[in-house]
Design a protein around this nucleic acid. Structure first.
Lengths: 154, 154
DNA sequence: CTTCATGCAAAACATTTGCAGCTGG
DNA sequence: CCAGCTGCAAATGTTTTGCATGAAG
């Protein structure tokens, strides 16, 4: 009875992977093994991996892959709006290929864990705000920083 | 009848400047002319100036001032929680000496204008969120990006 | 085949750091 | 006086770029 309402995480990943591949194709980008590997990793990872992390994973399958290529591919996906970039002022970057649209994050500043809390109403707030100030609001970002349960113990 | 309820912007600035100077003093930091100039600018500017911008202003009064000194001073004020750093992933940094605590921003991505919209309830949301996820939420950040009225015209 | 992607290395760039000399308190 | 600050320049570290080679379509 819930087969359709809540597809398993595997189905989600697969759908995202296919979506990303379609977009790349239709925009005329080549589907190289390296790109497919990056897409694969982004569609599967729920931990908001960093470029470095993606690089490590890709190298596991294609040892010659360069960091520059990962940067380039991620950049392409970002432009296609198929991945959400969570850049931080300190230079670190995390990527979300599962939910490539603005949404809140709850971030542990010690271990780096990033989770997606459920906070409805932010998109609506963005619209409202734009109206009151005469701005055309295009995107937004809401991050909460703190210590996760585990990191509070030590 | 409203003398006490809403102090003018000049009074605010003065209060902030004195507050910052007190903090520096009580923590044993020296009050050099360069530092005082940085403090002055931060307490007066409502436009969320960048380091570069602060540097330009300081140089007007103390032409020999180096960029490194501005960075160091701003960094000190940041640690004392007397200035809010708004760092962006692209490397740009804006500073707010008037409201050195987390608050939402509405940012024009074209001209760089930053304003402080009034959005009550965010702090409360942070608390609530921490409770539901077991996190100790220490700070947060909420930015809306878009085009200001003027930049929409062109 | 032609064009675009890859991968290496070098460039780019804002911020940080080391250190000699200066100066606030 | 003298620890801390300034200012110069060099270092840092990550992301970007140029270009020759290689592979997708």
């Amino acid at each position: 009875m819930k087969k359709k309402k809540s597809p398993g995480p595997k189905d989600d990943s697969q759908a995202r992977r296919e979506e990303m591949i379609s977009r790349l194709k239709e925009r005329g980008f080549r589907l190289t093994p390296q790109r497919l590997a990056v897409v694969e990793i982004l569609s599967v990872s729920s931990g908001h991996p960093s470029v470095e992390r993606i690089y490590e994973e890709v190298k596991r399958r294609f040892p010659t892959t360069s960091l520059a290529t990962v940067y380039k591919t991620v950049s392409v996906l970002k432009e296609l709006r198929e991945v959400l970039e969570l850049g931080f002022p300190d230079g670190s970057n995390r990527y979300d290929g599962k939910k490539p649209y603005p949404h809140p994050h709850l971030i542990c500043t010690r271990c780096g864990t990033v989770i997606d809390p459920d906070i409805p109403g932010i998109d609506h707030l963005a619209e409202e705000l734009g109206r009151s100030y005469g701005y055309r609001v295009l995107h937004h970002r809401l991050d909460f920083f703190g210590l996760c349960p585990r990191c509070q113990e030590d």
